[in-house]
Design a protein around this nucleic acid. Structure first.
Lengths: 271, 271
DNA sequence: CAGTGGTCTAGACCACATC
DNA sequence: ATGTGGTCTAGACCACTGA
């Protein structure tokens, strides 16, 4: 009807085979009259299956052949679905072994969203040199509620953490987690004090962080920040406000990182 | 020979058909014993053809069928090569029309590397509200020579430009162009004062900027900067140092942008 | 209307990993 | 030896574009 009705009629040959998919896809997006290519329907369905926990992070998916059989489609169609998921970082493929659900364990994933580098060595800031300062349960104020997409007053868990370079504090992170999605996330702090929040979220709540948006600006250091980072008062700080989104598109984390300009920098590459 | 000899023997069926490609690929990378999948060889060859100016930015490539015929391969193989190029932003594909060499003209490309947004409206900073302050021919100092990958003392063209939001100056850009790659780039400034440097480079020198790396930090404003941006002295500034690379991998531009924290911010998204 | 890219199929051979 | 993902082919139908 809207110039997009396209595929629905031409699918007649395929739709018998792929009716499980179609049934579920049409239900979820009632507005669009089917229209989606089969491989995107498969992709959507596979994503939902990952979300549901059918295969957890780090686990092996069925082979392309098995999935093709299951969906009644050709291997090529399923392959295209999985390839897109791989490009988006949802799964990773290994010749001879199979396709695995992405995990924030392992080198690539744990560094995937890390953007701070040492000015001296040029190396990425990471590793075990982080120290947890505090942990509180708080209520979302107006700003946080917008950012985390929750109601004002909703439960939030707040961590404060410092990363060190050698003996020197270089990065101050304030992390807010949505308690609706991560119930009793305090235990993350209490028990594990994990280096990678995202790996902890994955292990505890089956939540995969797949997208982040970051807003950067410069501002003067507040007194408490100057003290924690061992900087002169009013030093210019780089402030990075990150919102992190899960596979399902929910905002799971708001993180405000601040650092001075002398020790580390933020690095971004675009192609 | 080196455990990578893999494809070369199995190519026997294909290599008769694709010998033009193989001839040129093996010549360019003499170390690796062929090994590359055909579609990557095609991709590399097409990239070289774009680089050579055979098709200029904005122009139409031959159809998949024509290219497949030309290379003696199937349409699917050529398609995969072109699809990768499209993902990397080198070409853009339009059903019913064809595949075009990317141009920094048009909405997507001109905004592709723009990361500054208004704090108030949330809109991207762009448009005609930029003012050129100065243009000089200078010699590369040690730092610039490293960044632009030229010898110390090499010719560099330096622009200074200010972007406005309404009547207010918000962004101060200092742009260094490699004169070896962009001979007499002064004319860009003198004649056109273009809004998009990259579109100008494309038009004048057939240079496509396809990759940028940016390093961000906070620092105090220098007196000249405070004046140009109408800020109090020593205001914290966000400093973005960008290196821009062409299709061929050469560094064509070094750009230092600075702004205060009140009017605009830097936005980055990662998936 | 002819030509383009987009989707889908069915089948082949390959390198690689694991047992 | 078996099964995995990676590459390649050949041919089909589709929606879209522009002459």
């Amino acid at each position: 009807m809207k110039g997009k009705a396209s595929y629905s009629s031409s699918l007649s040959d395929y739709e018998k085979k792929a009716n499980e998919i179609k049934a579920s896809t049409t239900a979820s997006t009632s507005k669009r009259p089917v229209a989606l290519p089969l491989y995107l329907q498969v992709k959507g369905h596979l994503i939902r299956r990952v979300l549901s926990g059918e295969w957890r992070p780090g686990e092996l998916l069925p082979s392309e052949m098995k999935l093709a059989e299951e969906y009644g489609l050709s291997q090529g169609t399923v392959r295209k679905a999985i390839e897109e998921m791989a490009v988006e970082g949802l799964v990773s493929r290994h010749p001879g072994r199979g396709t695995f659900v992405t995990s924030h364990r392992g080198d690539y994933q744990t560094t995937r969203f890390r953007r701070f580098y040492s000015n001296k060595t040029g190396k990425r800031i990471a590793g075990k040199d982080s120290q947890y300062i505090s942990c509180e349960k708080i209520k979302a104020d107006e700003q946080l509620s917008k950012q985390l997409q929750v109601k004002t007053g909703a439960d939030i868990v707040k961590f404060v953490r410092i990363r060190y370079l050698g003996n020197h504090p270089v990065l101050l992170e304030t992390i807010y987690l949505n308690s609706e999605i991560c119930p009793s996330a305090e235990v993350i702090f209490e028990q594990k004090k994990p280096d990678s929040i995202y790996f902890a979220l994955e292990q505890m709540f089956n939540i995969l962080v797949v997208k982040v948006g970051e807003r950067l600006r410069a501002r003067a250091a507040r007194p408490d920040e100057s003290e924690l980072l061992a900087l002169a008062s009013n030093t210019p700080l780089l402030e990075v406000t990150r919102l992190a989104y899960s596979l399902g598109g929910e905002c799971v984390e708001c993180r405000v990182s601040v650092c001075g300009g002398d020790d580390i920098h933020y690095w971004n590459q675009a192609e």
